[in-house]
Simulated assay, not measured.
Amino acid sequence: MIEVYSWATPNGHKVHIMLEECGLPYRVTAVDIGAGDQFKPEFLAISPNNKIPAIVDPDGPEGRPISLFESGAILMYLAGKTGHLLPTGTAARYEVLEWLMFQMGGIGPMLGQAHHFRIYAPEKIEYAINRYTNEAKRLYGVLDKRLAKSKYVAGPEYSIADIAIFPWLRSWKNQGIDWADYPHLKGWFDEIAARPAVQRGVAVLAEHRKPLNDEKARNALFGKQQYERR
């Protein structure tokens, strides 16, 4: 039984979806990031960057327990453990990994900044809003162009690259996106959203999610508590 420490965010959903797609048994512990649960010593012991998700697999490599943080690393681990959703061929494998890195280095950070300045920032800074909204549109354009010639993001087969990217696009409206501008990406998005395992994955912890706009949540996510040295 894999122990999952998570919250209903795009990065959390990646791991929930992957576990559902692979059919691995798992148990979820909610880490309420608005309440500051991510700073508890027991969570920091497995996720030193105080970010969700993290997992503990008691049946890790060579039969020994292993803990992992960083959602991309977790996706790669689960793919390796199960032999699913990451090709074994060298060229195809690296094609998936480059698009996974595209999500980790671009889609996640840039769309996260778009969310912050468009929704959560205490003051509306026009330069920041425009910068990250335009970058969101650029990244959507990269994906739309790719999906004009490829069934899935990293090639002809569904993979961890699709799983990594999909949850971040569910908040397209908050990112200033008009789907009419990205027809190929919209077709892919709708196909992924219809997968039963994806639907189960995004439902995990969904009932616990709440707006992160009170003072305590802002302090935990964007304020003094977040930036304390631990």
Results as ranks from 00 to 15, higher is better:
A114R: 00
L85A: 05
Q226T: 15
L85C: 06
R138S: 13
G176W: 01
K151S: 13
Y26D: 13
R229C: 15
D144G: 08
I33L: 10
W7G: 15
G112L: 01
L78I: 12
R146H: 02
Y120T: 03
E207K: 11
P156E: 15
T82D: 07
T90F: 14
I66L: 14
E70K: 11
Q38H: 09
P58W: 05
Q199W: 04
A154N: 13
F117P: 04
G106P: 10
A73N: 01
Y182V: 08
I177Y: 04
H13T: 12
G201V: 03
A194H: 09
Y182E: 08
R138E: 09
K51V: 08
E126G: 10
P65E: 09
A197T: 04
V31G: 05
Y94S: 12
A180F: 15
A45G: 08
A206R: 08
A35F: 07
A54K: 09
R64M: 14
Q175A: 13
L143W: 12
L24N: 09
G108I: 03
E95T: 01
I107E: 08
A161R: 01
T82E: 00
G105D: 02
V4R: 02
G89R: 14
M18H: 09
F69P: 06
V56L: 06
I66D: 10
N174I: 15
E135R: 07
D32V: 07
V15Q: 03
Y77H: 07
A30H: 14
M110D: 04
K124Y: 04
T88P: 13
P53K: 02
R138A: 11
R93N: 00
V31E: 03
S47E: 12
W99R: 00
N49L: 14
K81P: 01
